[in-house]
């Protein structure tokens, strides 16, 4: 049955996945090429000192990409479930309902994890030849909250999409917007280091928010 759930989720995201890979690869390649160009035209020192003196992150053009992918994946996975109240079909399947949703979310999170880890790995592989480990760590640790934003926005999108009433969707969206605002407040490198454990805790909690929305759907909550 789990394979069937993964199969269904795959069918929903099979067009999205190559698109996401292309966009991610394209933007990442552009960011890395830009660094390469800086090297070629201005020398290694210009790149190092940009990070050291001017607190540049070098890959800041990738900042909103994980959040965008999380949002789109959430829509691609869960809007089809809510059209014509198709969630009734899903909840009627002979599988524990909260577990069903966790598996569905797990599929989305796994896809996001693969995308984000692949991107981070590509950045690490390219940059470690050019920059000292401290600078590479600085860049990647600065990017970590962006990935967290991607995961959170995916979970929030699922939470909002599965919610049956528009009134609550608005409330949920405001909460999501507040959290996103927090995650994109500062551009300073590694400024979110001390907040990361809280973000992880929030993500663990947010994993269950769509289950709550599904329960409200099942109870027949209406505007």
């Amino acid at each position: 049955m789990r394979k069937a759930i993964i199969y269904k989720e795959w069918i929903k995201v099979r067009l999205f996945t190559p698109l996401a890979v292309s966009v991610l690869a394209g933007f990442t390649a552009y960011a890395l090429l830009r660094i390469g160009r800086m090297y070629a035209f201005n020398g290694a020192g210009s790149v190092w000192l940009a990070v050291l003196d001017r607190n540049a992150v070098l890959i800041d053009n990738l900042k909103y990409l994980p959040a965008l992918l999380g949002l789109l994946l959430g829509l691609v996975q869960f809007v089809p479930e809510m059209q014509q109240n198709r969630l009734k079909l899903t909840l009627h399947l002979p599988f524990l309902q909260s577990r069903m949703l966790l598996w569905m979310l797990g599929c989305g999170l796994a896809l996001l994890a693969v995308l984000f880890i692949a991107q981070a790995a590509a950045i690490w592989i390219c940059l470690r030849w050019l920059l000292a480990p401290e600078l590479v760590a600085r860049i990647l640790m600065t990017a970590l909250p962006w990935y967290a934003a991607g995961v959170l926005l995916y979970l929030f999108t699922a939470w909002i999409a599965v919610e049956p009433t528009w009134r609550r969707r608005l409330f949920d969206a405001l909460v999501a917007a507040g959290v996103m605002r927090l995650l994109f407040m500062s551009d300073y490198p590694r400024t979110y280091d001390t907040l990361l454990p809280w973000i992880a805790l929030l993500a663990a909690c947010a994993l269950f928010f769509p289950i709550y929305s599904a329960d409200r759907f099942r109870r027949g909550c209406q505007d």
């Binding site: 049955m1 394979k3 069937a4 199969y7 269904k8 069918i11 929903k12 089809p80 059209q83 014509q84 109240n85 198709r86 009734k88 079909l89 009627h92 399947l93 002979p94 599988f95």
Partner: peptide, 26 residues
């Protein structure tokens, strides 16, 4: 229990083969 929802709602993003393969496992 087999359920038919008003409007013959189904996973419209699937083909007839995919939907059979999906449901058969349950």
């Amino acid at each position: 229990i087999a359920l038919l929802i008003e409007g013959h709602v189904q996973y419209a993003f699937m083909t007839i083969e995919e939907i059979e393969r999906f449901y058969a496992r349950f």
